[in-house]
Nucleic acid binder design. Structure first.
Lengths: 232, 232
DNA sequence: TTGCTTTGTGTTGGATACAATAATTGAATA
DNA sequence: TATTCAATTATTGTATCCAACACAAAGCAA
C-alpha cells in the first residue's frame, strides 16, 4: 500500500518504529522542522509521513498545532483491545481451517528467535513478540486481516507506553508456545482460549494501574532510528 | 481522525464520495493538476488528500506515476468481503448485548429514509444503504469498529464498481428491515444469520460473473502492459 | 514491417518561499 | 506579585518552482 521508493518512506518507517518501541512516547511533539533536519529532507516530505501515521492512529495531527505521538484515552484503550480480540480470534479461526504443518513450522522458527533474545535484548524481544501476532495474521493469507492486525498491534504498543509500568512484560513467550502447540494439534477450542487469555493478560498488565508518561528529546531519539546512509 | 479544518479535507471528501458513488470508476487517473484546478487549491493540497485515500485503500498511489482509483483484484475482492463478514458479525454480536430499544428506533428512522428514495434517487439510495451498515457499527459505541466498517464498506463499493453489472442491487431494503426485526426481538442467532446472508447476497451479485465486467476493461488493462506481450 | 533509440511533452517528487496561525515573551498596570 | 495584553517568535498551511521521471511519438537501423 505504501511504496517504499519515496523519500518519505524512511521517515514514516523510522517514526513508526520509534513509536512502537516506545522511544517516542505518547504526547511527544513531532515538529516538521527538526524531523526533516535529522533525516535530511524537507518539511514537505516529513508531512507526508505524518499524514500517513495520523491515518493509522499512531500520530495525532491537529490543524495549526502540528503533530504529536497519539495519546489514546483509557476508553480508546479498551476499545482497541476489544477490537484486537475480535481480529485475532478471526486469525485463529482461519488458521484452524488450514493445514497446520507449514504454519507451525514457521511459527516455531519465530518462537526460537523470541527465546534467543529473551532477557537479553529487551527492545528486540518486544518487537519480536509483536511480530509474532503479525506473523500469525499473515499466515492466514489475508492481506487485509494482516494489515488490520499490524495496525492494531502497533496501537496496543502505544497503549502500553501510556499506561503500563513494565513494558517488557507485554507478551509471554510461553504463551506463544502454548498457542503453537494448540494449533499443531488442530485444537481450535484450545487455540482460541489460549489467544483470548493471552491478550487478556496483556490488557490487564497494561490497564490495571494506569499512570502517565513523559517526554524526551525528539531529535536525539530519531537520530538513532535514521537509516544509515551507505553511499559508495 | 481527519480534521476537517484543513484545505485538503474538501478535496479528500469529494474524491471519496465520488469514488464510493462510482462517479470515478476504478482505474481512472487522478492528476494532481486538474483536481487542484477544479477545487481551486494547489497540488500540495491535493496530494495530501491523495495520500490519505491511498492509506484507506481507495486510491492507488504509485511513485512517479501518480494516483488512480484503486482497482481491487478478484482475490482482494474476496478477501475484503470475508473481512467484512467478520467485522459486521462483530457488530451484530455487540448490538445483541445492548438494549435494543434505542438502537431499533434509530435504525427504523434510517430505514424510512432508505424507503423514501428507493427507486427514485438511485445514487442516494446506494449511499443510504451503505450508511445503514455504518450506522449499525456506530451504534456499538466503538469508534474503531465503526472506522473499520466504514472503510471496508467503501472498499466494497469499489469492488461493486469493478465487477458487478447492476449497482443498484447492492443492498436490499427488505433485508435491512428483517435485520432490524431480529434485533428488536433480541434474537442474536437470527440477526447473525440475517447479516450473513445479506452480505453474502451482496457479494454474489458482485462477484458471480466477474468475467463480463472485467472484459469491459481489457483494452484499458492491456494498454498498460505495453512492452513484449504476446497477443491472444 | 520489427525492434531499438531518441526526443518531446506532461506529470510527479520534493525543496523552497511566503502567508497564516499558534505559542511565548515581556512590559505595563492594578 | 499577579494579570493582562501587545509584540515577538516559532511552527504550520499552502503555493510555487525546478529537477527527475514516465510515457508517447518520431526517427533510425536491420
Amino acid at each position: 500500500m505504501y511504496k517504499s521508493s519515496t523519500r518519505s518512506f524512511p521517515v514514516y518507517d523510522s517514526l513508526r518504529q520509534a513509536i512502537i518501541e516506545q522511544a517516542l512516547k505518547p504526547g511527544v511533539k513531532l515538529p516538521e522542522d527538526s524531523i526533516g533536519e535529522t533525516f535530511g529532507v524537507s518539511r514537505t516530505t516529513v508531512r507526508n509521513a505524518l499524514v500517513r501515521l495520523d491515518a493509522e492512529g499512531l500520530v495525532d495531527l491537529q490543524p495549526n498545532r502540528g503533530a504529536s505521538v497519539a495519546e489514546p484515552t483509557i476508553e480508546e484503550a479498551y476499545d482497541i483491545f476489544e477490537m484486537r480480540q475480535c481480529l485475532e480470534r478471526e486469525v485463529i479461526q482461519r488458521l484452524c481451517k488450514m493445514d497446520p504443518k507449514p504454519i507451525v513450522k514457521t511459527l516455531k522458527a519465530h518462537l526460537k528467535e523470541e527465546e534467543k533474545y529473551l532477557g537479553k535484548d529487551s527492545t528486540r524481544s518486544i518487537r519480536l513478540a509483536g511480530e509474532f501476532h503479525i506473523l500469525l495474521a499473515e499466515l492466514t493469507g489475508s492481506k487485509i486481516l494482516a494489515n488490520y492486525v499490524n495496525e492494531i498491534v502497533s496501537r496496543c504498543s502505544l497503549i502500553l507506553a501510556r499506561f503500563a509500568q513494565v513494558h517488557s512484560a507485554e507478551c509471554g513467550v510461553e504463551e506463544h508456545a502454548e498457542l503453537i502447540a494448540a494449533l499443531a494439534e488442530g485444537d481450535a477450542e484450545r487455540a482460541n482460549a489460549c489467544m483470548h487469555s493471552h491478550l487478556h493478560g496483556v490488557q490487564d498488565r497494561a490497564l490495571l494501574n494506569p499512570e502517565d508518561a513523559q517526554s524526551d528529546n525528539v531529535a536525539a531519539i530519531l537520530s538513532r532510528y535514521r537509516p544509515t546512509k551507505t553511499k559508495p
